[in-house]
Design a protein around this nucleic acid. Structure first.
Length: 800
RNA sequence: UGGCCCGUCGUCUAAGGGCAAGACACCGGUCUUUGGAACCGGGAAUCGUGGUUCGAAUCCACGCGGGCCAACCA
């Protein structure tokens, strides 16, 4: 596994970058605490597995710890059994939470106290509207909500009502505790969210101790804060919840450094059936055998199928971490499984669809068994077993063709093939039954070719697997394929959802009468094999560990050859299921980046580029702003876009004009404001910046007069954004006073000498390398050179 | 008719003002007693339009496309 350390995302993904930055800055005193917080209401699936890898992985990478916390705030859905299964799954994946096992329900008392704090601050109230009224009052995404008539209850009344809610005086649904935030908030979650509801239900850990239960948005952030979590990582659908997460923590009174929430996209794996909504009916209807049916994508299904935990972790590394909505191809999972299994799975022979071969020249003087190594030469592992051999053998039906397709390398009438580890045989006669079905092949063995090499040096291309007919053991083999013919829609609004209608007819193929070499009987039942030329298999842990051998196919082998006929057929019906032997079946991906790769067109007809409706509306309401909009364009000559941006709010215009007071060049100043200053806002407003318009004006002046290069000016700006201060002082402090054009020569020569191969490439036509050279010179001068002059000099030296 | 987030090879990611990189998949070759593995090679991308800049995948704006949000679920 260690040789996968080069996977690019690991260590450089945006979450780890943030954690690294925090650690370097000494936030949280260098501690890193993450958590995996499942609700114990179902089984974990492959998506959870990647989240587990992320949370535990980040903690591991930074010497921190990762908690396992059950988010058991909803008594109606949760169960001890799920909590137990979840722990088993995480351990199986190879992660350990040590003593840090927590239950959200253990914090109920502290959460209650926090709610009292909010009520006392006038930031929470008891709402006694029925559920429907609360829902309607919330408005819609395009319409503000309306305030509840109970919103103005006094603190005393709220305190009393909340206490009585807890005391069990009210029936379910009669009252809730809500945050008092803003019923017109553009983020729906901020429209007075419900924090507590009344539920007279038995909690699997708390019994009937509580009749009020906190909701996710109120509870989760507190749980993190109680535990000292530093980085609370969740999936992207919670990004709208972050604002509320922060609101609760800040208003309850948690000071920085407190936990912060970060969202990533999570895993979406092709053909994986993940949602409880999709799986439950399948289990109930008996379409699958249970939550661990190997066709599902639960962790327990993976485990039962035989997927090694290392493969799941490798998949997580391969997929990486980002915020972009994306879907991973199934082939990546298959690669991860093969990658892990190839070096460790002993090779053994099994014939799934047997046809008899009779060796007509076998006279009984040959050895009755052969030694065969468990691993091919390229895998440096010891071990071998004896393989029985005799006059009657089984080979794979698909390894014989009476009328072979082009490129077929196996047994044909009159042709030769090698039996792996054994002899080269020639097919002399094809025996058929009355229906024309081939029932037996009569062959002669080149008895001098024992071990597989011919004595006269003639080449035999094909090698096939086989087992001795007399001593083979019978087995059942289960081949799994995807459950549905199409992608399962996880969209609950999609109407034609019923998954039952889209079940693939042969997602499970049970093959009886499989012939396996007898050595497997004595092996550890946990052994994961490679059945040579067929795939990776292990004995089903539930039904295959007794006297009868039942093998699950974990994954097929990668197939390097497709018969031309089947290939053509696959192309024709648009199937991605290529023509390979049933026994080794594999799947390749159909894909599409959410259909999103459609190239964007130009501006829609009739729209006016560059002017925001929000800002237009504000100007319509404020004549002063409207006047600025006009004068910026007509008197200063700014573009409509820039004028719009700078006249959207009074503060923006003030800032701009303060800058102009220092350096009266509207065009240049506006350009700095719109592009460079806006860039470092990142959600903040101009007023949050530790400097004002005057400082920007002075900075622009410095650059305009040529005291510093524009490049250096941007460096100064970045420092000012962090620490405030005066631009001229920063120039001094950072040593950015411009290096004159006449001093540039040595720097340029040096860079050119340091990159001889790039210089050659440049002269050969790769002119974009000029950027590299300029960048290097800039670096060498500490950013103080004027890049325009550098570029000019560089071009002169390179071209001239 | 809103708010927030996201658009880089077929797919998943990297680079986050200065050489568009890696992996999977695909194609070709070498080797091979697994049509496996390994090795070598190849094709293959910055959603569009403007702007800022010596230089833009990266910063700004608009557009296009995708995701999330109106449970007393999490």
């Amino acid at each position: 596994m260690s040789d996968h350390a080069e996977t690019p995302s690991r260590g450089t993904d945006f979450i780890r970058q943030k954690v690294r930055a925090d650690t370097a800055a000494g936030v949280y005193d260098g501690n890193v605490v993450t958590r995996f917080p499942p609700e114990p209401n179902g089984y974990l699936h492959i998506g959870h597995a990647t989240a587990i890898c992320l949370n535990f992985g980040v903690a591991e990478d930074f010497g921190g710890r990762c908690h396992l916390r059950f988010d058991d705030t909803n008594p109606e859905k949760e169960d001890e059994e799920y909590a137990r299964a979840i722990q088993e799954d995480i351990r199986w994946l190879g992660f350990d939470w040590g003593e840090h096992l927590y239950f959200a329900s253990d914090y109920f008392e502290r959460m209650y106290e926090c709610a009292v704090v909010l009520i006392e601050k006038g930031l929470a109230y008891v709402d006694s509207q029925p559920l429907e009224a609360i829902r309607e009052g919330r408005g819609t995404v395009v319409q503000p909500g309306v305030e509840s008539p109970y919103r103005s209850r006094t603190v005393e009344e709220n305190l009393d009502m909340f206490r009585r809610m807890r005391a069990g005086e009210f029936a379910d649904g009669t009252h809730v505790l809500r945050g008092k935030i803003d019923m017109a908030h553009p983020n729906m979650l901020m429209r007075d969210p419900v924090f507590y509801r009344i539920r007279h239900a038995e909690h699997f850990r708390q019994g009937d101790e509580w009749v009020i239960y906190p909701l996710y948005d109120y509870a989760h952030c507190l749980e993190d804060a109680f535990e000292g979590v530093t980085h609370s990582i969740c999936t992207i659908e919670f990004e709208n919840n972050r604002e509320l997460y922060d609101w609760v923590l800040d208003n309850v009174g948690f000071q920085e450094p407190r936990p912060h929430q970060y969202e990533w996209a999570g895993l979406d794996l092709e053909h994986a059936v993940l949602s409880k909504r999709a799986i439950l009916p399948l289990v109930k209807a008996g379409v699958v055998s249970g939550w661990d049916d190997p066709r599902l994508s639960t962790i327990s299904a993976f485990r039962r199928r035989g997927v090694p935990p290392e493969a799941v972790r490798l998949l997580a590394d391969l997929v990486g971490v980002s915020r972009a909505p994306a879907r991973t191809e199934e082939s990546k999972l298959e690669f991860a499984i093969r990658e892990v299994l190839n070096p460790v799975a002993p090779r053994v022979m099994a014939v799934l669809d047997p046809i008899k071969v009779v060796l007509t020249n076998w006279d009984g003087t040959q050895p009755s068994e052969l030694e065969a190594p468990y691993f091919p030469p390229d895998i440096d592992r010891p071990g071998s077993r004896m393989v029985p051999v005799g006059p009657e053998l089984w080979i794979e039906r698909s390894d014989f063709a009476e009328d072979p397709p082009k490129g077929f390398r196996r047994l044909v009438p009159g042709g030769e093939v090698r039996l792996r580890y054994a002899y080269v045989i020639r097919c002399d006669e094809v025996v058929k039954d009355e229906s024309g079905e081939v029932v037996e092949l009569r062959c002669t063995a080149d008895l001098a070719s024992r071990g597989g090499t011919t004595s006269d040096g003639r080449k035999v291309k094909g090698t096939i697997h086989w087992v001795d007919a007399g001593r083979a053991v019978d087995a059942e083999v289960r081949l799994y394929d995807r459950l549905f013919v199409d992608e399962v829609s996880e969209d609950e609004n999609a109407e034609p959802l019923d998954p039952m209608d889209r079940l693939a007819p042969e997602s499970l193929e049970v093959v009886h009468g499989v012939k396996v070499e007898p050595s497997v009987r004595k092996d550890d039942p946990e052994t994961r094999y490679q059945f040579e030329r067929v795939g990776y298999f292990w004995r089903d842990p539930v039904e295959g560990r007794g006297d009868t051998l039942v093998f699950n196919r974990i994954v097929g082998l990668k197939s390097g050859w497709r018969s031309p006929a089947k290939d053509a057929q696959a192309r024709e019906n648009g199937s991605d299921e290529g023509g390979k032997d049933r026994a080794s079946g594999r799947s390749t991906g159909v894909s599409g980046r959410n259909e999103k790769s459609r190239k964007g067109g130009g501006p829609a007809p009739g729209t006016r580029p560059g002017v925001s409706e929000e800002r237009s509306a504000r100007r319509a309401a404020d004549p002063a702003l409207a006047e600025r909009f006009r004068s910026y364009q007509e008197e200063m000559g700014l573009s409509e876009e820039y004028a719009d941006l700078l006249s959207g709010r009074p503060e923006t215009g003030d800032f701009f004009e303060a800058a102009l007071a220092e350096h009266d060049d509207p065009e240049t100043v506006s350009s700095w404001l719109v592009t460079d200053v806006r860039a470092l806002l990142d959600g903040r407003t101009l007023e949050d910046l530790p400097f004002g318009g005057a400082e920007i004006g002075r900075l622009v002046g410095l650059v305009a007069r040529g005291d510093v290069s524009r490049r250096a000016g941007k460096d100064v700006l970045a420092r000012m954004a962090e620490d405030g201060g005066d631009p001229a002082e920063w120039v001094e402090r950072l040593g950015l006073t411009r290096v004159g054009a006449d001093e540039l020569g040595p720097f340029v020569d040096r860079v050119l000498a340091d990159w001889p191969d790039k210089v050659e490439a440049y002269r050969a036509g790769k002119t974009q390398l000029i950027g590299l050279f300029v960048g290097e010179v800039m670096k060498a001068t500490g950013g103080a050179a004027d890049p325009k002059a550098v570029r000019a000099l560089l071009t002169e030296r390179l071209d001239g």
